[in-house]
Amino acid sequence: MGTEVSTSPTSLIDQTVVPGDVVLDLSNMTNQTIKLGSGLRQDNEVISVMRAGKLRYSKPNKYWVESSHKRYVPRPEDHVLGIVVDCKGENYWIDIKGPQLALLPVLAFEGANRRNYPKFEVSTLLYTRVVKTNTGMNPELSCVDESGKAAGFGPLKDGFMFETSTGLSRMLLSSPTCPVLEALGKKLSFETAFGLNGRCWVHAAAPRIVIIVANALMNSETLSGTQQRIMVEKLLEKISD
């Protein structure tokens, strides 16, 4: 989506914006193209906000609104944790916490064919990739990457799954590694999978480690990096006593 405006960041960047706020005024800007991400729209001569959140900018010319919600809007190439709801014909129906159930073709697995494909019971947890999100159609998922390899996608056995906001799951998936995960990883041995749809899966040898990690992750949403490290230290002190 291209619009003729200058790419100089506005004073609202990294600030909280709400619906109706004007981010950029196009009337007095030089001829350059910008890209509008989610939460922004062109409204005649201005770029206005459609959703509450923080306005982000990345060089050279991208603007979008980053927000944390309980509901998830599917986007292509998002990695999500889905729960099998039903199997009809050649598709699994998967709940990904979106507006609609998603479709996962039975052939969308590594090495799957019409005679030999994985069979999952209802309520199985799967780590999948969103392939298509066409308007008016159910999203389509896949358990292989672009090259056709499993690459970590597939069923998640055992472990514990909990639901968080989309903002927390984005923070946990961010690079560099989130402070809470870094601090926990130095002392404890566990396995995690985070979906951009706000679902998290934790697996460890002992149930108490799973509980500690899950609680630490859930508590970290409203804490800064330093506060997260302090919280983890206190948690680990308690279990070592």
Binding site: V18, P19, G20, R51, A52, H69, K70, R71
Partner: peptide, 11 residues
């Protein structure tokens, strides 16, 4: 509605 992240023209 704004808290739910529903797309709105304005409050």
């Amino acid at each position: 509605l704004a808290d739910a992240g529903i797309m709105m023209y304005d409050l």
